[in-house]
Design a protein around this nucleic acid. Structure first.
Lengths: 183, 183
DNA sequence: GTCTATATCCGGATAGAC
DNA sequence: GTCTATCCGGATATAGAC
């Protein structure tokens, strides 16, 4: 789904990879909508687990940098995947309503976490940005999601440069993560 | 296509709106691929025409602000459309190769124009940003495209706030366009 | 150039054996 | 829980009349 979108993948794709028949998938997920909803719920649960597992000693910038790296990971392998939010927001109009609801929840949680992290980071002096944290959060999320999509057109290297650019603006210095050197 | 994506719209949708039959569309565009390629070419031509029509007296910030406003226009009406780049980059994997080529050209032209505009604006002192113009151009384009997609989830108001946020960072002051007051 | 009618294919979904 | 076989709807595409 992260490669082809919800409307772009078929039971057949899964069946071939698992070496089963698509009827077997229908046993676990009666309709494609059910499968879609379960996937988004899994993504959201994964995000919550990721946030919960962050080392408590990390600064806001360290956690934000780690979040950037999760996006870099979507490009690893020959897959060139999108982030869940980017794949699903783009085809939001054609999604069944139950999926739309889950996507809204996922996006809300990400924005909330980003906003909190940005606010804390600025208060502690490790992050710099103008405007409201909630607005900056939406800008960051949009840039990451749009950049990931564009990476498939113009090359992954450009996406790592985008990560560096975002880091440069947030910290005011050359990024410590050196995303440009990532694989 | 800007609402449902290339894979998400059918000849039927067009036929109903035009009050014709889908066979009539096939007369003009034998295959859906042909229609898709023609659409992207039209978008690119429209962008070139838009750039060519910019008043020669405008500053870099005035033209950039006008570019932002074209994105705000995608949200007008009840359509809630995406920008061509955002709609097509998201489903790039499933696009036929001739369309991919056109999308790459469109994205390249937009990035090039943005980069040039940013560079000029900074040199003339009307725009402020860190890093290379080419990197900032990709960040801007990604934020606009991702933000437009996200607007359908969280409301158009948030997108206008994003435009304000981008303007604030580029000019260092409250945006003159007051995008937050747009319809 | 547009119509009616139809061919063709694909993907989601179900029935029933095992 | 997975299989084979089949149904069904939707979408691209074509043939031929007008």
């Amino acid at each position: 789904m992260l490669r082809r979108g919800f409307g772009g993948f078929a039971y057949q794709h899964i069946a071939v990879q698992l070496g089963i028949r698509n009827a077997a998938i229908h046993y676990h997920f009666p309709s494609k909508d059910d499968l879609g909803v379960a996937l988004v719920q899994r993504y959201r649960g994964g995000f919550h687990a990721w946030v919960a597992d962050l080392p408590s000693g990390w600064s806001s910038w360290q956690t934000l940098r780690a979040y950037f790296e999760t996006y870099g990971r979507y490009l690893q392998g020959e897959a060139c995947r999108l982030c869940p939010g980017g794949a699903l927001a783009a085809e939001f109009e054609t999604l069944p309503e139950p999926m739309r609801h889950e996507v809204r929840l996922l996006m809300r949680d990400i924005h909330q976490w980003l906003s909190d992290t940005l606010e804390t980071g600025r208060r502690e002096g490790v992050l710099r940005f103008q405007g409201q944290p909630s607005d900056k959060a939406i800008e960051l999320a949009a840039a990451l999601q749009g950049g990931l999509q564009t990476a498939r057109l113009i090359g992954t290297q450009r996406f790592y440069q985008l990560l560096d650019q975002l880091a440069l603006e947030l910290t005011g210095e050359t990024p410590a993560c050196d995303a440009g050197a990532m694989p």
